[in-house]
Write a protein that binds this DNA or RNA. Structure first.
Lengths: 213, 213
DNA sequence: TTGCCAAGTGTCAGCGACTGCCACTATTGT
DNA sequence: ACAATAGTGGCAGTCGCTGACACTTGGCAA
């Protein structure tokens, strides 16, 4: 996952301006908020033209979304690799854990980790960004459904289960993420995201079946 | 639900231009697509200024969303009215059925019903609109969670179940809606939305627990 | 009725996101 | 060294959206 050949100069240059744009955007967004940051400000900070900006990102939202660690591709990959003995929900849970573990390393710089959290909160609190984010999640959900259907060898058109499972899992994951972001914001620091997710998954059964009292 | 006093002339006039804007927007959106329709075109059709348009709708997306029968407020209302003996999931299911039944009547004009479907498909196929729609659903989901928590008398902050239930139910409902829209588009006409939703809810257990084979 | 207040509208001026177009510069393979 | 090609900059223009202000019109009381 996440590998890069140190190819030609052209490639590297491109990668560099892209990174610079991202970094400049991050600084400005976190300092002034998303809406109050113009594309011109971002490009000025990196000293490229506005036109160039829109060659790297389809729109302003995409810069912000690109700042969030995504991991969806990784998830798909890990999910494909899970042993076929597991039932789908187990496989999803395990793949998520692997995805999470795999990226812990470069995240320890403190300042970086903190910025990551702030970005989550920024997205969560900016309607347009949240909308775009939800849209992206919906797309990822479809991919998950497809992989699950393939894994289990069921017809993805007829059988509702893959889509339902993907939908429910995504919903739970998103709820957990929401919760985690909020908690981390309140200084209730430390709890691992995956731990939060597990707590949510554990409550899934009770929430659906039992009488609550 | 949905009641209107035939109040002063001022009120009626306002309602009228709002309706006209909606209708004009609907026509244009369905004819030319969302992106290729400008706000100026809409206002020209109704003969009001662009400025007025934005006094009625916060942005272009909102007109489109307003064209979709919403029913969220109704759902909340019905949900509150459900007998407290029911467990939450049952209550949600029943409230949804009531919401659905309550609006069947004025929808039979054929042409209207067909346009409604087309709007769903328009939203589904237009990224910005879909994003906005998902965002709205997320807000409604929060309201559902709040009502459920209140209904069951549990702490909405500590207890994860209300939010999880709302999230899962919304996810299933959305999946069903997606399915329904697609099916209706393929001419596999006739199946009641609520029927589709029930099929999905029935598959929820199997999708989560069982080994799929 | 008259006259006042407030609600609703139009106009205008302007910002910011985004696109198409074309000329220019810099890398790459030969 | 040269040509093909990828990437950038600048410009002109469209569209969504907003603030400010002047104007019209419906609601209401004297």
């Amino acid at each position: 996952m996440v590998q890069q050949a140190a190819a030609g100069l052209r490639q590297r240059k491109k990668q560099r301006t892209r990174d610079e744009l991202l970094q400049a955007a991050q600084q400005l967004f976190l300092r002034q908020g998303y809406a109050r940051t113009t594309v011109d400000e971002i490009t000025a900070a990196v000293d490229v033209s506005q036109r160039t900006f829109f060659r790297y990102f389809a729109n302003k939202e995409q810069v912000a979304l690109a700042l969030m660690a995504d991991g969806a591709d990784d998830l798909i990959h890990y999910l494909r690799a899970r042993p076929s003995g597991e039932n789908p929900l187990q496989a999803l849970r395990a793949a998520t854990r692997e995805t999470w573990d795999a990226r812990g390393v470069p995240e320890q710089e403190g300042a970086t980790a903190n910025a990551a959290l702030e970005i989550f909160q920024l997205v969560e609190s900016t309607p347009t960004l949240l909308a775009a984010h939800l849209h992206r999640l919906a797309e990822q959900q479809q991919m998950i459904a497809a992989v699950v259907a393939e894994r289990e060898g069921v017809d993805p058109v007829t059988d509702l289960r893959p889509r339902l499972l993907a939908a429910v899992f995504s919903a739970v994951a998103r709820t957990a993420q929401h919760e985690w972001t909020a908690a981390a914001g309140r200084g209730v620091a430390g709890e691992d995201f995956f731990r939060v997710l597990e707590r949510h998954l554990d409550q899934l059964g009770p929430a659906l079946t039992a009488d609550w009292r």
